[in-house]
Design a protein around this nucleic acid. Structure first.
Lengths: 188, 188
DNA sequence: AGTGATTAGTCATATATTTGAGTATCACGG
DNA sequence: CCGTGATACTCAAATATATGACTAATCACT
């Protein structure tokens, strides 16, 4: 039940609408938490009812109006309380890994294609995250920024996301290569 | 809805009881899928009803009796069908990353402690996975094994688990170090 | 002789998440 | 001037996952 805390954490640095939040959860924030738009709207409504965030209507001429949310003091307090609680072990859920677990029984062709596709996807994320990191640290070096920057939280989690995707890409490529080699060998 | 497929994949190489499966999901298999015992028992019951696995009672003198499950041909077919479907992007859910995202607002002490704890946990998993990999490849070299071994699926996913935990450990250590340095600096 | 851990599960309930279908406005390309 | 896609949401229902409480035997110890 940490979706609420993920939302609070995402709203710490900027005021966002549900829609923007959904976009963020589909990119950067999704590094560490995954959720669909519907969930986010529902969670924001609950958080507002509980006074952990406040929304304000922003009237737009050219676009539908939106509601921007920001974390209240109570919200920050809740996040601080959460930060002090024991954490559950992180977990991954990945279709592709399930398939590779069954690799010896399921035909390598489709698997190789999926591994290749995933590697390409990981590459795209690596570039995206690289860009985000550069943007966050500006003209400072990484070390400089991490030592003296004001908001390093998002930077640190983005670093983890980057490393994760690099690991993903490397493993996908290597695994695909191994499967290719084996099928080539078997065919003869 | 890939829990069923994770269960099938886990049962491919050995006949297991629900209890053993739960253990496996708490260790190796949990690399790529996470589930509680209750879920596994429920899923096994459903899979049996649908004819994707068959269970057989094993009477034990010294322990309570158990039911061992194995994948049927229909189960294997279902897994093969699944292996050919598009995969959803993998996702992580991690309390600790949420907390680090909020690092600039929540007090570093607790965070550093949790990062250190997580790094130690990752270390334990690294050792465990290293041992599992050695066991699986026996006296063969890794390259030899991956080229000519019979069942490499579990080996490949375990490799991914190992790399993930190494990344986890490194990031936790580095992040903890950065937070420590910053608090030391601020205190002055 | 009693306590706690391990094996081997079951049941009920609550919460979280996903699936699917809608609503409405505006911008842009052809 | 029509379709496509983006912005900005909402609602209902189905499914998956998590929480908590149980049973019951055996082992390893103190």
């Amino acid at each position: 039940m940490a979706l609420r805390h993920a939302v609070l954490a995402a709203l710490l640095d900027e005021e966002l609408s549900g829609y923007q939040l959904a976009k963020a959860f589909d990119m950067g924030v999704a590094n560490f938490w995954h959720a669909l738009p519907q969930q986010l709207y529902a969670e924001l409504a609950k958080l507002e009812k509980e006074g952990l965030v406040t929304g304000r209507e922003v009237v737009q001429d050219t676009r539908p109006n939106k509601r921007l949310f920001q974390v209240t003091e109570a919200g920050l307090a809740e996040l601080q309380r959460f930060a002090a609680t024991a954490n559950k072990p992180s977990f991954i859920r990945d279709d592709l890994l399930v398939k590779v677990q069954a690799a010896d029984h399921v035909g390598a062709g489709k698997l190789i294609a999926q591994l290749t596709e995933r590697a390409a996807f990981a590459d795209a994320k690596i570039e995206l995250f690289g860009g985000l990191l550069r943007q966050m640290r500006g003209d400072r070096s990484e070390e400089e920024f991490l030592r003296h920057g004001e908001r390093i939280g998002p930077y640190l989690t983005c670093q983890r996301g980057l490393a994760f995707e690099q690991g993903n890409r490397d493993w996908c490529r290597q695994t695909a290569a191994i499967l290719r080699e084996r099928t080539a060998h078997v065919r003869r």
